Amino acid sequence: MDLDGIGLDDVDRELVRELQGDGRLQFEALAQRVGLSRPAVRARVQRMLDAGALRVVAVVHPAVQGTTAACHVSVAVRGPAEPVAQALAALPRAPFVTLTAGRCPVVAELRAGDGAELAAALDEVRALPGVESVRVQSYTRVLKDPYLAPSAPLSITVDALDRRLLDELAADGRLPFADLAERVGLSAGATRARTLRLLDAGAARVVALVRPEILGLGALCGFAVHLAGPVDGPAAQRIAALPEVSFLAAGTGAAELVGTVAARSVGGTRAALDAIRAVPGVRGVESWLHLELVKERYDLSGPGRPTLASLSAVTEAFG
């Protein structure tokens, strides 16, 4: 889709940023923040939704989804990379797949209920036609994520009715409470109370999923960091604090840290990578440029639903 064809301007981008912080912000609140009337804001948001430039969904806590193990995989291939990426995207435990420019032309993320299930998913990847080898980086802790608090524990028990609410919000995060109530068979008041309880406890966050170029962040790359000191030391904290670093996770495998840089240009990406290399305690940095998003979705329990999520949001928090 040609996003330029819908004529996004600075006000549209500001609306997106506000919805990234809270996808259920009322139109009245949005109008006050961007200085437009409520009808004008409503029309702008609906226009972006209809054009596919914006999606508002609930990102559900991994403990609710039953996903406690995750890893980053870099895939070397024999022959063309796109067929391998498409085959990998068809696997139910691969929520994120991208084509890249780097040592390995396919990069993906796998999520599973436990270590044994994750190992089985890795075996599926290795068995795909065209896969030469797979490098694995297991996540142990998320240090920075734009959608969920790092390693946030789940403080409440979620029942079957709560899950139905979260399923509806995962499809449309801005559903009115009255519509939610009708779909789950509760009163509007009870639905509102349950939904707010789930959101306040961190069972989900309702956020705007966007293509990164909408916000002027068209240059995206992944990186892996080799540290001289401990993973939980000051080097990781300093890298996480860099504004261009949109995601950072600690892990075990080929490197101690894996993350994503989101910049406005290739020059900005280069500068961000040099800033990471300059952090005391960093022994080396590998990087790869994201060329094409093949798959990204958050709901692992149902059919694959490709989203327009930013490539910076490649995982949820695994605590």
Rank of each mutant, 00 (worst) to 15 (best):
17 R>N: 11
303 P>H: 06
69 A>S: 14
176 P>E: 12
4 D>Y: 14
57 V>D: 03
177 F>Y: 14
54 L>Y: 13
87 A>T: 04
53 A>D: 11
227 L>M: 01
177 F>M: 10
14 E>F: 04
121 A>Q: 04
7 G>C: 10
287 S>W: 11
125 V>D: 02
194 R>N: 06
36 L>M: 08
170 A>F: 06
194 R>D: 11
287 S>R: 12
25 L>S: 15
17 R>A: 15
255 A>C: 12
210 V>C: 00
21 G>M: 13
237 Q>K: 13
259 G>L: 04
264 R>G: 14
314 V>Q: 07
303 P>C: 01
243 P>T: 15
270 R>C: 00
8 L>I: 13
210 V>E: 11
112 A>E: 04
182 E>C: 01
219 A>L: 11
184 V>Q: 02
166 L>A: 02
7 G>E: 13
260 T>V: 15
78 R>N: 05
188 A>K: 15
299 D>K: 03
107 V>K: 06
74 S>G: 10
52 G>T: 13
151 S>K: 07
296 E>S: 15
139 Y>I: 01
221 C>Y: 05
97 V>L: 05
193 A>K: 09
103 R>Y: 04
294 V>R: 06
317 A>F: 01
230 P>F: 09
154 L>W: 09
19 L>M: 05
286 E>Q: 11
91 L>G: 07
191 T>Y: 03
60 V>L: 03
247 F>L: 10
27 F>Q: 11
